[in-house]
Simulated assay, not measured.
Amino acid sequence: MLLARSRLGLLLLGALLTFLLYLLLPAARRSRLDEGKRDWWAANGTVRTGTAAGDFPVFYREVPAAAVSPRRPDVLFLHGQAFTSKTWEALGTLALLAAEGYRAVAIDLPGYGDSPPVEMAMTAQGRRTFLEHVFQELGMQRPVLVSPSMSGRFSLPFLLAHGDQLAGFVPIAPVGIKDYTAEQYRGVQTPTLILYGDGDTGLAPQALQNLQHLPQHRVAVLPGAGHACYLDKPEAFHQALLGFLRQLK
């Protein structure tokens, strides 16, 4: 009887140790991965800043990617009225995408941050031309354009005129959506992620009502987030953005 109890005790002890190892080993692997990422940030996480030369100088921020894949599109971040390119640096978005192998660049729109005002930005055609200039100066071919709020005044004219020059479009409750008809939106074939926070009861519903006419769209709603949903729920925002980028061809 005593021998049987001893064997039973050893079996239970072995089962307990196996269970603990099952729990601890994945955590250890994650810890090593996190440590590897920290080492990469220490060596490559410096944000590169500069001003793209040309007729319309524009200030930009960029984190060099570890290894940019030619199959992954560049990503250009615009910003809302109360923000600048610094927002995407502070949020960790540029660094996160760089770690995933994307070339991610954020710019200061004309008259914001360190970019000087330009007269051409007063018209829709001028703002479209400005983005054409930015793509050319930064050497971006068919990038993904991320456009929150006020920057819709720049991104939407470009999308409607040159949607085929974008690999993807991520509007975040942009303004200017009512300037175009449902028929115009239906003519755009750019893959689109309509992204917004469910607490944005102003611009988000209007944007969805109009942008849902884009044929190749999907929708991501961030619970508990407001108009600047990327600030309220950065992890959920990054997850939705990366999910969209990974499914692009």
Results as ranks from 00 to 15, higher is better:
93 T>Q: 15
93 T>V: 15
93 T>A: 15
96 L>R: 12
97 L>Y: 08
98 A>C: 09
99 A>V: 04
99 A>S: 11
102 Y>A: 01
102 Y>K: 12
105 V>K: 07
105 V>M: 03
105 V>N: 11
106 A>F: 13
107 I>H: 02
108 D>K: 04
109 L>T: 02
109 L>N: 03
110 P>M: 11
110 P>C: 14
112 Y>L: 15
113 G>Y: 00
114 D>A: 12
117 P>Q: 02
119 E>S: 15
120 M>G: 11
120 M>S: 14
120 M>A: 14
122 M>V: 15
122 M>F: 01
122 M>T: 15
123 T>A: 12
123 T>V: 08
126 G>R: 09
126 G>T: 09
128 R>C: 04
129 T>S: 15
131 L>D: 12
132 E>V: 12
133 H>V: 01
133 H>I: 01
134 V>H: 00
134 V>G: 01
136 Q>T: 09
141 Q>T: 01
141 Q>H: 13
142 R>D: 13
143 P>T: 00
144 V>H: 02
144 V>M: 02
145 L>S: 05
145 L>R: 02
146 V>I: 15
147 S>F: 04
149 S>R: 12
152 G>A: 10
154 F>R: 03
155 S>T: 11
155 S>L: 08
156 L>W: 01
159 L>Q: 05
159 L>W: 03
161 A>L: 06
161 A>V: 10
161 A>K: 07
162 H>C: 10
163 G>Y: 08
164 D>S: 09
166 L>R: 03
166 L>D: 00
167 A>P: 13
171 P>L: 14
171 P>H: 10
175 V>I: 06
176 G>F: 01
177 I>R: 01
177 I>G: 03
179 D>S: 05
180 Y>G: 06
182 A>R: 10
182 A>H: 06
184 Q>H: 12
185 Y>D: 02
186 R>N: 08
188 V>Q: 11
192 T>N: 06
193 L>W: 09
197 G>K: 05
197 G>R: 03
198 D>P: 04
199 G>N: 13
202 G>F: 13
203 L>T: 14
203 L>C: 07
204 A>V: 12
205 P>Q: 11
205 P>N: 03
206 Q>G: 02
207 A>S: 15
207 A>C: 11
208 L>T: 05
209 Q>S: 04
210 N>I: 07
210 N>D: 14
211 L>R: 01
212 Q>T: 11
213 H>G: 08
216 Q>P: 05
217 H>S: 11
218 R>A: 10
219 V>Q: 08
221 V>Q: 04
221 V>W: 00
221 V>I: 02
222 L>R: 00
223 P>S: 09
223 P>C: 14
226 G>W: 07
227 H>R: 10
227 H>T: 00
230 Y>A: 10
234 P>F: 05
235 E>G: 00
235 E>S: 05
